[in-house]
Design a protein around this nucleic acid. Structure first.
Lengths: 229, 229
DNA sequence: GTTATATTGTAACATATGTTACACTTTTCT
DNA sequence: AGAAAAGTGTAACATATGTTACAATATAAC
């Protein structure tokens, strides 16, 4: 496939090509086969358990990873914006399957690099191998955090950890929740009324003050305490 | 450190050195620095969140990975026997931390290879790079399975999946549970009395027949149904 | 074989979450 | 601006699990 300036620019911003200059990116890409694909919003890029033989690089738009739990309810694993590599940790091995459904949130474009081409790239440039290994460890850390989150027993714990995380990220005790309650409930794997109830209880106990998607943390030490009891 | 015949034999049985003959293993190991360490039973090899800069290869004995949930209860993630590599997916990246406590079940020995030595090995032999990438994808699949298991809402679902898995593994509907109820409860992240109660209920409903660690699956279709409702 | 320890079975009660329903408020669309 | 759709708040009731306790049984140690 024909290499466009635009594609190379986009790929170069991707962590996989970090520390490589444009000439090197060009050279690497000329030596391999890859495809480009476009998607409309709410389209499935891959289905959970499909064979995973290619590296998928999201070069524009955004996607979300979702897992169906066994009662059929969707659990959103994460939203990912471009530029990003998808499912990088899953490509190798004899039992390589996509771990989640990947669905576009908006119009999106991906570059698909077959496994063998990827291996050839590693042989030709050790920086890209290092970048790839870095990204895999990042994903492993993410999966572990997800596991740790899922070990929370109560909705209260989940909210506590989430609010603390958001306050660090937003640099304030006044937080704007980035999702509707319904979406947040999906993320937490709980029901929306139960989530609302727990927020309400925490407000009654003076831990937070809440008004729809605006939350103020009043007793931060109590939130931290909830994480360690 | 001095290379012993025994060490090389042991390492060679490890998946990381698969398809390499002994001469190649010798050559690779001669070019890097590594350490050997011994542990008694119930010793901590590493603690969760410690920096993870080395590849640890278990060459004898067995270990378990454990995660503390936020009520202080231990969740056992898995038992691992030798020969195995530990935490291979976590070594790279800027935020590389061990994801779990690693504790010996019995007398054990490990080989520790620093990250830089590992990278040198990858440059010198592409088969070992391929083996390493295979093992990382295997670990990612494992972590995803763990996440999927943790999305089970009820003890009943967890038992159903576990029994089906065991019956496949043991090739029979008459199963011997490999753990005590207490250990199994730790693995499932639930309390022992609740686990026992659910087993008892499933027996009362005629789904299984149980006598301590001996379980017979009576209505397998009902078990499968529990996984899909 | 006997004793000590660990494991299992079970019950009563407490707690957290799910389910269903509906009213109210906010946002989106025309 | 008005209507429709989406999001939020809350209540009553049902369900699953946790907690605590203790008796019975099995296993390990001497």
């Amino acid at each position: 496939m024909q290499l466009s300036e635009d594609t190379v620019n986009r790929l170069q911003t991707c962590q996989l090509f970090k520390k490589l200059d444009k000439k090197d990116v060009y050279k690497l890409l000329e030596q391999i086969l890859f495809r480009k694909k476009s998607y409309n919003p709410e389209q499935y890029i891959v289905y959970s358990d499909d064979p995973c033989n290619d590296l998928i690089i999201l070069i524009s738009g955004s996607i979300r990873g979702e897992m169906n739990d066994f009662s059929g309810k969707k659990i959103k694993i994460e939203d990912i914006k471009s530029p990003s590599t998808l499912a990088s940790a899953f490509i190798f091995g004899p039992e390589n399957r996509f771990p989640v459904d990947i669905i576009t949130n908006e119009k999106s474009e991906v570059i698909i690099i077959p496994r063998n081409s990827l291996i050839r790239m590693f042989s030709n440039n050790s920086q890209i191998l290092k970048n790839f290994l870095d990204s895999i460890s990042g994903r492993a850390q993410f999966l572990t955090k997800k596991i740790r989150f899922l070990t929370f027993k109560t909705i209260r714990e989940k909210i506590a950890q989430y609010l603390i995380q958001l306050s660090i990220k937003q640099g304030s005790n006044r937080i704007i929740l980035p999702y509707t309650q319904t979406k947040l409930a999906d993320l937490f794997g709980v029901t929306r009324p139960s989530l609302a109830r727990t927020f309400s209880e925490m407000e009654k106990e003076g831990i937070i003050k809440s008004d729809r998607n605006k939350i103020e943390i009043i007793k931060k030490n109590k939130l931290v305490y909830l994480l360690n009891e």
